[in-house]
């Protein structure tokens, strides 16, 4: 399967945690740099003390070898540093907590499932406007309030460049604020081990400029159902038992909503680029690509049928 997996985004450098793309990640990155550099400095100090203890001149050794030095270096010094850090950490925690933020944030409910994500866009009153899966579209420069829930086991939502992570726990609704300040694609990942193919439970956030976002939003409204042999096969082969395509009889709820699947950047929850080839490959044998996922392999399709179904699905923009 390696051949079918192409890089989604090159790099890993700079590390996403240290490369923030919005205010909720940015302040944590500042903290991270201070902690990394400060921690490094303290390590150097301790190693220097250890070096003096082993190799230093007798005068310094004597000063290091008493209870006064232990109190000063092992207690007083960390106490001062940690008091400062604690105050900073508490202030930051409070300012970043979504419980304290009200107002005009865009609201999206995201539900973690074994091993993909349901995405429900909501209006200001919390009514559902639009369903999607595995991809979140947001406008830049505006905070987005995520309501995080779980359908089965515990998952954790994490898009490192936009903010910290937050667990999705059955029976609870956790809130998380994210914001992107530049258009782009931001990679996310389930961070809490959720069994089976947890490693391949990815996600992307697509941030648009306000104008683009409005265009994207408008493109979601007409439900383009299409027709033809692909749809017929889709309906007759059991796909519709799990998937919904609005405007057709397919109304299954177990798997991701496919109404706009052709416009998604990725397949299989953030792990494959989306094109007719990967689509066909996924349908034919998703178990080889993401072992353990809940979609059965469709070996029964002939090559021709497979092409018809996948060609149909990629047209659902």
């Amino acid at each position: 399967m390696t051949s079918r997996t192409e890089p989604l985004a090159a790099g890993g450098w700079p590390p996403p945690v240290l490369d923030p793309a919005g205010p909720f990640a940015e302040s944590v990155t500042t903290l991270a740099w201070v902690l990394l550099l400060g921690g490094g400095a303290v390590l150097v100090i301790v190693l220097a003390m250890l070096g003096i203890a082993l190799f230093g001149p007798p005068r310094l050794k004597t000063r290091l070898g008493g209870e006064r030095a232990i109190w000063a270096l092992g207690f007083a010094f960390p106490a001062v540093v940690l008091t400062g850090l604690l105050i900073w950490g508490l202030t930051l925690t409070s300012s970043l907590s979504a419980t304290r933020v009200a107002g005009d944030a865009m609201r999206v409910k995201i539900i973690g499932e074994m091993w993909w994500w349901r995405v429900h866009y909501q209006d200001a009153d919390g009514r559902e406007m639009l369903r999607d899966a595995n991809e979140l579209h947001i406008p830049v420069g505006r905070p987005v309030l995520l309501e995080l829930e779980a359908a089965d086991v515990i998952h954790s939502f994490w898009v490192p460049r936009l903010g910290g992570k937050m667990d999705m726990i059955p029976g609870r609704t956790n809130r998380l604020l994210i914001q992107a300040d530049a258009p782009g694609i931001y990679k996310g990942q389930c961070a809490e081990y959720c069994g089976g193919p947890h490693a391949l439970m990815g996600f992307i956030v697509v941030a648009h400029s306000p104008a683009d976002f409005a265009r994207w939003r408008a493109s979601r409204l007409p439900e383009s159902a299409g027709a033809g042999r692909g749809l017929a096969l889709f309906l007759s082969s059991g796909c519709a038992a799990c998937h919904t395509i609005r405007g057709t009889p397919a109304n299954g709820l177990a798997g991701p909503d496919l109404t706009h699947v052709g416009s998604r950047r990725t397949l299989g929850a953030g792990i494959l680029p989306n094109n007719p080839g990967t689509m066909a490959g996924w349908i034919a044998d998703s178990q080889a690509i993401k072992p353990g996922n809940r979609m059965p392999a469709y070996h029964q399709f002939s090559g021709d049928e497979l092409r018809a179904v996948s060609d149909y699905l990629v047209t659902l923009k």
């Binding site: 106490a79 940690l82 604690l86 105050i87 508490l90 409070s94 300012s95 907590s97």
Partner: peptide, 17 residues
């Protein structure tokens, strides 16, 4: 001494945030 310092720290979350 340790206890007093830790108790003060423990109270900070009620003052900040």
């Amino acid at each position: 001494a340790l206890s007093a310092l830790a108790i003060v720290w423990q109270a900070l979350p009620a003052l900040i945030g």
